Simulated assay, not measured.
Amino acid sequence: MAAGSARGARGREVPIAERADGPYQPRRPEREFAGGGFTEPRGSRVGFRELFVGCHQDGRPKYAGEDGTGFARCTLLEPRGRLDPLRVPRWPFDGPVRAGARGTEPKPAARIAFTE
């Protein structure tokens, strides 16, 4: 069975499932990702087409990927309203620049814990 954890009501880490023969390990490797850009919508889409994320590696923000799926039409406009004031003239990540990308000041977006 895979091991995992979640934060309980008081903010404490609680096990979700553990191997019966293995010890509980309270910390998992984590990485924080920051939003750092978007592409303009096309066709009937509103808000944005894709959001770009990166993470710090060797003290520099490094491009990690993008996502543009899973957003309902009503949830596309609110993030765009927060992105426009953060626009910067150059791409904020080390790595390739996507055609049509609009860079923004990198802001923490998600902390992801990895398991084996």
Score class of each variant (00 low, 15 high):
M1Q: 11
M1Y: 15
A3S: 06
G4A: 04
S5Y: 04
A6M: 10
A6C: 08
A9E: 10
R10F: 13
R10P: 01
G11N: 00
P15R: 11
A17I: 03
A17K: 02
E18T: 07
A20W: 04
A20G: 03
G22S: 15
G22L: 12
P23E: 15
P23V: 12
Y24P: 02
Q25K: 14
P26G: 02
P26N: 01
R28N: 14
P29M: 05
E30G: 11
E30T: 15
R31C: 12
R31N: 08
E32G: 06
E32R: 14
E32V: 01
A34Q: 10
G35A: 07
G35W: 12
F38Q: 11
F38M: 12
F38S: 13
T39Y: 04
E40C: 06
E40P: 01
E40M: 08
P41F: 00
G43S: 05
S44F: 03
S44G: 07
S44L: 11
V46P: 00
G47T: 06
G47H: 03
G47S: 10
G47K: 06
R49E: 15
E50G: 02
L51Y: 03
L51V: 06
L51A: 10
V53H: 05
V53N: 08
V53S: 12
V53P: 11
G54R: 00
G54P: 00
G54I: 01
H56Q: 05
H56V: 09
H56K: 04
H56A: 11
Q57W: 11
D58Y: 02
D58Q: 07
G59I: 06
R60G: 01
P61V: 13
K62I: 09
G65I: 04
E66V: 09
G68F: 11
G70I: 03
G70R: 09
A72V: 11
R73A: 12
R73E: 02
R73I: 08
C74V: 14
C74F: 14
C74L: 13
L76N: 08
L77I: 13
P79L: 10
G81M: 12
D84L: 07
P85V: 00
R87Y: 04
R87T: 15
V88N: 04
P89I: 01
P89V: 01
R90K: 15
W91K: 13
F93H: 05
F93L: 09
F93W: 11
D94A: 15
G95H: 03
V97W: 03
V97L: 06
A101G: 14
A101I: 05
R102C: 14
R102Y: 07
P106S: 13
P106F: 07
K107S: 10
P108K: 00
A109L: 03
A109S: 02
I112V: 15
T115G: 13
T115I: 13
E116G: 15
